[in-house]
Design a protein around this nucleic acid. Structure first.
Ligand SMILES: [Mn+2]
Ligand SMILES: [Mn+2]
Ligand SMILES: [Mn+2]
Ligand SMILES: [Mn+2]
Lengths: 223, 223
DNA sequence: AATAAAATTTAGACAAATCTAAAAAATAAA
DNA sequence: TTTATTTTTTAGATTTGTCTAAATTTTATT
């Protein structure tokens, strides 16, 4: 039997993993705000994760996932993203309504379940938000992407990922018909507020703020 | 937002519902043994369920589900059985390996998820064990389910469940081309050893022993 | 270097779900 | 109808995860 961890512990591992990826480093306060909880609760949990050897931690000095902790985090992320893919591709959910549900489904234990699901879905490489899905060994293919602020004007590109994945930004993008795989190009950048005008084929131009642009990643053939 | 109950409470509701269905009545000890827990823990939980108006309970006098408790129990059962159907029909699990996983999946909250799943599966009426799946209003179609010993002669019926689920009986039934969904009728009952002769369309008659007949359940429309 | 501010941890509490041991009530047997 | 047995409930603990308030440590500012 594979060791099982509580949903709460799995959520902490996942949060720590994400923060480690973005900044190189994580703090107690970072985790507290990511998890919508109190710093004192984070400290409590850090001790428990350390006791389970999922975390390297010395009080006041900082912490990071152990090799085992990282492995567990990647499996939760794998489950989260496969379930999101399932919800969108098989149950016709919108990409902006699957995160909450996947947040629960990711804690279902069976390894066989998730490997069968992966197979059923045809071994998808990325989830509905463009994020890579780790394989059953916890590996993923790194795709390099640029955010829209850094996409050259008039360069055709394809949306390949979203940074911030709040329901709010997804709703906004949805409304403007911007989604994974959307082909677009930047027509104008306004220096005043760094807003950007985009053109999607067969649509009238749309404008997005700097805040949004920073969170939309695209890939394009750079010759 | 629909009220949410803990997995533990949902499991208790389900257990109480099942015991109510089988016997007309449930006791603290029944629940304890069904849930693999202690009578004292059951009493603790009965008080909590009563406080939430899911249970009608007076100490030492007995208890039963309230209308609301029954409704909740039926929704958990609906989810359990739909997930079992999904696991068998879509992920190619054996019918003998899905129960444990469904025991976890049944606690996922989203109502939309389960209704979409139902639709995706084509609104199945029974789970892989032949048990009826309640619809989204908690209703199920009452089809008379009897074992083959009690099926009237010449009454067309459909195999809807197997009692004993050992590999041995499954092998025997498999050999005789009897499985879930098989349409058949009883042509003759032999008083000598209670063996039974069956007819399946386009096949020559087959005989099964009393022991086998007792473990094959069928349903038929009772007019 | 001394002080102020911020981050982190500890102390002590609470709710949920479970347990063991003991008490109380209901039921069965004598 | 007493007495014995079984069932059910209570009392008091324990574990997990969370919280507030206070103490401690680190970091930033004079
Ligand atoms: Mn989660
Ligand atoms: Mn995602
Ligand atoms: Mn369950
Ligand atoms: Mn079943």
């Amino acid at each position: 039997m594979v060791p099982q961890y509580s949903s709460s512990r799995e959520n902490y591992l996942k949060a720590i993993f994400h923060l480690q990826e973005v900044h190189g480093t994580v703090t107690t306060n970072d985790v507290a705000s990511e998890m919508q909880t109190r710093p004192a609760s984070v400290t409590d949990m850090l001790k428990k994760l350390k006791a389970q050897k999922l975390l390297l931690y010395e009080k006041y000095k900082g912490f990071k996932l152990s090799t085992e902790g990282r492995k567990v985090a990647l499996q939760i992320i794998r489950k989260h993203r496969l379930w999101e893919y399932f919800l969108v591709e098989k149950l016709r959910f919108g990409w902006d309504e699957v995160h909450e549900i996947a947040e629960e489904l990711e804690h279902i234990g069976s390894k066989k379940l998730i490997d069968r699901l992966d197979e059923f879905l045809g071994f998808p490489k990325t989830d509905p938000h463009g994020d890579p899905i780790p394989d059953s060994q916890g590996r993923w293919t790194l795709t390099r992407q640029v955010d829209l602020l850094n996409l050259p004007v008039n360069q055709q590109a394809e949306v390949s990922g979203i940074g911030d994945q709040s329901a709010e930004i997804l709703e906004l993008l949805n409304h403007k018909h911007i989604g994974l795989g959307t082909r677009l190009e930047v027509k104008k950048k306004f220096a005043f507020d760094n807003s950007i005008e985009l053109k999607i084929k067969n649509q009238s131009p749309v404008t997005i703020s700097e805040h949004v642009a920073k969170n939309v990643f695209v890939k394009y053939d750079d010759e």
